[in-house]
Every structure is written in structure tokens, then in C-alpha cells.
Amino acid sequence: MRSRRAIFRVLLLPGTLWLAVLFVIPLGLVVAVSLAQTNIVGLPVYGLHLGNYQNVFQSYYLPVILRTVEYAAAATVIIGVLAYPTAYTIARFGGRFKNALIVLVILPWFVDYLVRIYAWVVILGDNGTLNGILHGLGMHGSPPVQFLNRPWAVIGGLVYTYFPFMVLPVYAALEQMDPALIEAGRDLYASGRQVFWHITLPLTSSGIVAGIVLTFLPSLGDFATAQLLGGSNTYMIGNLIADQFSNVGDITFGSALTVVLMSVLLVVIVGYLRRTSRRARAVRP
């Protein structure tokens, strides 16, 4: 028993080191930079300056925060509505093509993130593929439909990007579910709808919650989608942070924004973990 525990401790070591070196230390640096000032070349001069945090809580950033939450929530809901039937169909009716279908879902991720979003710029542009099709359908002479630079373009981009992150956990939950439970439900004269609402959905709720966490949180921090598909009125918190590094060179303010955003995300994650651990305790005999 004791020797087995020792082995597990050794096995934990690489992961712990990995997290410490590549996660905890950089995170500590971000916090330190958020409290620093910059010198003439833009490098941080460490200290304890709370001014960067005062700037975070300016009223003119409130619309950006609200918009970010709005887009991320809208994207998550749409992904949920689209991904659940996808995962359900694959899990229940995929047969021997199940694995191939799952690979198809994640296939776009084999292409670089930025390239995929650029592809949408080409498709949705004023002279783009979609407008070309509309034109061909007989809308000659009418001005091109403006798809880009609109909130829906950004939300659509988020849906496209994070869709697999909902399919996979929901699929895993559906796979774990015993199909006999559905048959049992039907044997007890439940309608298809009743079986879904009272058996399938509750039993896969852990997958849905995991999917929500995996899609909502990265959507909150996303910036490339709004940068490339959005316009001047679709600015998200991720854009504000990215701009501090790549455009205005205020890495201390960018770091303060990052720390605040991460703190908010942490609250969501801790809430999720507490929920799942309670559940795990509840099912333990």
C-alpha cells in the first residue's frame, strides 16, 4: 500500500513540474507586471502600483464587459442547441462510423485557428463567396449584403470555433449512458419526449455542464474572432487586452485586465468544480 502511494507520488512529479514552470510562474509574472510601471522601452519596473487596476474599473469599459458576456452566452446557447443533437445522433445512430464522425467534428482543428477565421472573411466579405452565391441567385444589381463587422458574424465565429468542445463531452456522457435505460423508459409507456426530458437529459447533464464550461470560458477570452470578423462595435475584452500588448504597448494595464478577467473565470470554474465534486460525493455508496 505504502509503496503504491510512493509510486503515485513519483508519477505526479512531471505534471506538477510542468504546471509550476509553465503555468504558475508565468501567472505570477502576469500578476507582478499588473502591479508594475513601464520604463521608456516598455519593460516593467516592478513595484506596487494599483493605478492599473483603477483604470480597469472605469465606467467606459463596462459596455465591453457586458458585450463580451452577451456574445459568449449567446454563442454557448447556440452551440448547445446545435451540438446536443449532433452528439446524440452520433452516439445513438453512428454505429460503426461513430469514431469517423467524431474525427470529422474535430477535423477543422487540424487547420490553424487564424487561417480558419480568415477563411470566413473570404466567405462573408462584400465580394465574398456567399454574396457571389446570392448574386447568382438573381439578386443582380442589389448591393452586397454586409455580413462582416456585425455582432452576428462574431457570435457565428465563436459558435464555429468552439462547437467541438460541446460535442465531445456530451458525446462522452451519452456513450456512458446505458441504452437499456431508454428501452426501460419506453417499456414503462413513456413517450419519446418524456424519455428524453426525464432520462437522457438528466443523465447527460454532466456532459452539458462540462461543454458549457469549455465553450463559455474560451469565448469570454477570445479576441481573434472579433478582430477579424467584427467591426468597431464588436470589441470584446480579449481585444482590449490584446491591444495593450500589440498596439499601445501598455503591458501593465493589459496584465491588470488579464488578472481581473482570470479572477472572474476562476469563480465560474470553482463553482463548476464544487458542483461536480458534490455530485461525485453523492453517487459514492
Binding site: 509574472l29 507586471v33 487564424l114 481573434a224 478582430q227 500588448f245 500589440s246 503591458i251 493589459g254
Partner: peptide, 16 residues
């Protein structure tokens, strides 16, 4: 120019 956005973290580390 757009890809610059992605180098934020690296730049921060470099800065440190």
C-alpha cells in the same frame, strides 16, 4: 499584423 495578437503572451514573457 493580425497574427501579432497571438504573440502577446510570448511578448510578455520576453519582456520579463
Amino acid at each position: 499584423r493580425d497574427a501579432a495578437l497571438f504573440s502577446g503572451a510570448g511578448v510578455l514573457l520576453a519582456a520579463c
